Simulated scan of single mutants.
Amino acid sequence: MKGEAWLFTGTALFFGATTAVYRWLSDDPAGSSALCVSFVMSGLVAAFLWRQYRRGGERPEDRGDAEVPEAAGRRIFFPDRSYFPVLTAAGAALSALGVVQGLWLFLIGFGVLVPGVLGFAFQNLGHPE
């Protein structure tokens, strides 16, 4: 987690410096706003990763002398076959097309998207782990 935190901290610092220089040299408010939003988003990710690193400590991936079995922690159940990814993708595509084509297609896409997302969220409720 520490490596990822440093990566996003560097990205946030880059966007912060770029925003300041761009704002100073340019009168373009759209570019300044986009760079500022990029700085804020990468800063939020960096803050989250630093917080997680402080809470959980080093992971085996952070150490050079770690062994493969050390990383075997909590096991996650993945179903053998699920149609929810296809349903979610189709709903997202129809909703995106509906933004361009009309409200009727967006509503159809949203009607397909909601069961897909709910299926993703609740498909493992019956699993014992």
Rank of each mutant, 00 (worst) to 15 (best):
T9D: 02
A12Y: 01
F14W: 13
A17L: 14
A17S: 14
A17V: 14
T18P: 00
A20N: 02
R23Y: 13
R23A: 09
W24V: 11
W24N: 07
L25A: 15
D27W: 12
D28Q: 08
S32K: 06
L35M: 13
C36Q: 13
C36F: 14
V37S: 02
F39K: 01
F39Q: 03
M41H: 05
G43E: 08
L44Y: 03
L44F: 11
A46W: 04
A46N: 09
L49G: 04
W50T: 05
Y53N: 09
R54S: 04
G56H: 15
E58F: 09
E58C: 04
R59H: 10
P60I: 03
E61Q: 12
R63C: 09
G64D: 14
E67I: 01
E67W: 11
E70V: 09
E70P: 08
G73R: 15
R75L: 13
I76E: 15
D80C: 08
Y83D: 01
F84C: 01
L87K: 01
T88H: 04
A90Y: 00
A93H: 07
L94D: 10
L97E: 01
G98L: 01
V99M: 03
G102E: 04
L105G: 01
L105S: 04
P115S: 09
V117F: 13
A121N: 12
F122T: 07
N124C: 11
N124G: 14
G126S: 12
